[in-house]
Design a binder for these strands. Structure first.
Lengths: 277, 277
DNA sequence: CTTTCGCTGTTTATGCCGTACACGAAGTAA
DNA sequence: TTACTTCGTGTACGGCATAAACAGCGAAAG
């Protein structure tokens, strides 16, 4: 369908097609696929079922979408558009980063299959890039180095995805089997009989460690943010000591944005170095 | 094959079978499957290929293993046995926790398919439980509450898995396509042309944020451990203030293990409350 | 008007996959 | 011997993605 099958950028970034009254459209296929995946998960998403849902044959889809893989990329960008408008509050980095993490989490609760998508070579669509830019912005104003900003955002993103993945798996298995997670594990008595030999496990068990478990997402998010905060604090400490370009010590600005360069000259030199290294 | 197909505990925890000179065995099937998954990933693991590798028919496997799902659980416990013996050093919690995280990471580099296994209802085998106990032990001696110990270990575990998952995916796609990750993203020029409108992204790009990216695993591990450390410090601060049972302030122990209860009576009362709430 | 061509949807077929089921051979106990 | 269990095999079914050839249809060109 696409002339450039290996790529897929065009399909993701093209203008919105005008939709004829009847017949197939990439957009209609994508929306039907999203509905299906919402209901049955990514495993349950098959070209046949999408086609059935639309009342066409399986192969008709291939006229509008190169294949299943590409369809999933289109679905991803479609739902990325559901992110709320980034409102430009002047809150601190932690408030903002926590907010975007919760937004991503919320989105994955609405579309659990998002966390199930595998593969590292997904070209982001316009909605995906907008959200990524929004996430980066939360940390861009801190004392972190650029590469650290990127790594920290990737860490938070992976954390949310991992958390969403276990959530969707438990929920799906609960719905499929009709047995709740607690009940299922409670019924594995033949397992617990054999755990006496493991000292820490039994000790924590007797202390009631499993009686009121922590909320996995809340606990993990707080730890990850704390970890990023620790790094920012470290960078803050060492930042004001010396000019980022020439290394000579610089006196702190009395108010406003903290200084990074000792002089206009150094700032300009750093800028040039960045532009054409 | 198993009388209790829904369960699977017996299959995982039974004694080692003695292996006849020829013919199929659960153990031989599992080992062949591990080899296959090491080479081709979990996607490439099919009952047919395992059987071929052993020189038997596909269906013969079902005499020894209930199905693919169960086979994967057996594989998991098999490779869990490769963890190095837990040596009882008296290092601090951070050293120990970092060590187990790196061990898990190392194991996932040897068997990349481990991170691809999905599902939350995997009965752990003896090797898996031993390793879990070992991880818990790293944090059990700290001031964290039991539920927090468990949550923190789960967080670290999920972090390692998530990290391993993206690693295996990049590597597999690199091998399959013959194009390195850098080359592939570099070739997406039609994408970069459209990224001008995203301010933070372009700013970080111009700052060279992507030129020397952080090591994803090292960066993330440090952040997560920092986050756990922050919580431990907080618990340490508030710990000595008051008895965990009755709340009255308690004087710190002059040496040895820090006190948690103000009196023997409170300790006993807490114990009883834990046993029968 | 007719011919041509490109777009769209259909039909058919190929090659994977997990596994249910019936069968036969071989070993074991009565 | 007979009866019964264990183990491996062969066939078959339904599901999956998708390749390839084909048919209708609208628009443009002659």
């Amino acid at each position: 369908m696409t002339r450039d099958p290996d790529d897929g950028v065009e399909l993701l970034w093209r203008e919105k097609e005008h939709e004829p009254r009847r017949g197939l459209t990439t957009g209609r296929i994508v929306r039907a696929a999203v509905e299906l995946a919402d209901a049955e998960g990514l495993e349950g998403l098959s070209m046949r079922k999408v086609a059935d849902r639309l009342g066409f044959t399986t192969m008709s889809l291939y006229r509008h979408v190169p294949g299943r893989e590409q369809l999933i990329e289109l679905m991803l960008d479609e739902v990325m558009g559901e992110h709320p408008r980034p409102q430009e509050g002047e809150a601190g980095w932690r408030t903002r980063l926590e907010a975007v993490a919760r937004q991503a989490w919320e989105l994955r609760r609405r579309h659990p299959w998002m966390a199930e998508v595998r593969g590292t070579r997904h070209v982001p669509g316009p909605n995906g890039v907008a959200h990524y830019d929004h996430m980066l912005a939360a940390l861009a104003g801190t004392s972190l180095r650029p590469s650290e900003v990127i790594a920290a955002i990737a860490l938070v993103g992976r954390f949310v995805d991992a958390e969403a993945l276990v959530l969707v798996e438990t929920q799906r298995e609960e719905r499929r089997s009709g047995v709740s997670e607690q009940e299922w594990w409670g019924a594995r008595e033949s397992l617990y009989e054999r755990l006496d030999r493991y000292p820490t496990l039994t000790h924590l068990w007797e202390c009631g460690g499993w009686d009121q478990p922590e909320d996995s997402f809340e606990f993990g998010l707080a730890r990850v943010l704390d970890g990023i905060e620790a790094l920012i604090n470290k960078r803050d400490e060492t930042r004001d000591d010396s000019c980022q370009e020439c290394g000579t010590p610089l006196e702190p600005a009395p108010s406003g944005r903290p200084r990074v360069y000792c002089s206009r000259a150094c700032r300009q030199r750093a800028y040039r170095n960045r532009r054409r290294p």
